[in-house]
């Protein structure tokens, strides 16, 4: 149970994100929903790469014998994926918030139900 706690957190974050997307009508809250969803998925990726007692994959002056490399060293790919995904979700959030600012300036409202002029 306790060693799987990060996967439970992933499920909670994703559920929270989707709940926010579906039920909240405030444009900033929707942006927050996307952001929470992205954090959940980032946590999922980083949890996949976790290895108990693993060491960083740096071969120069490594503290372990060459035979142990396979067993002990952590694969760096999930961390790299997560970093990329964090950068991307930052860009998405920034763009969404700037759209929200423009919509607020023009209409004086952040309510998605009110500002839906595009219908049908």
């Amino acid at each position: 149970m306790i060693e799987n706690i990060h996967f439970i957190a992933v499920a909670l974050l994703i559920a929270l994100g989707i709940y926010t997307l579906i039920f909240k009508r405030n444009l900033i809250k929707i942006a927050m929903g996307i952001s929470i969803l992205a954090s959940g998925i980032n946590l999922f990726l980083i949890s996949l790469g976790y290895r108990a007692q693993g060491i960083a994959p740096i071969f120069t002056n490594a503290a372990i014998a060459a035979s142990e490399v396979q067993a002990k060293m952590v694969l760096p790919a999930p961390q790299a994926l997560t970093l990329t995904s964090i950068v991307i979700s930052l860009a998405v959030t920034a763009l969404m918030l700037s759209f929200a600012i423009i919509i607020y300036q023009k209409t004086g409202s952040l309510d998605a139900t009110k500002s839906r002029r595009l219908k049908g």
Binding site: F99, I102, I103, K106, R116, R117, L118
Partner: peptide, 9 residues
């Protein structure tokens, strides 16, 4: 403002 809303969507 419609363009921005479309882009947001």
């Amino acid at each position: 403002v419609e363009s921005v809303e479309a882009a947001y969507k």
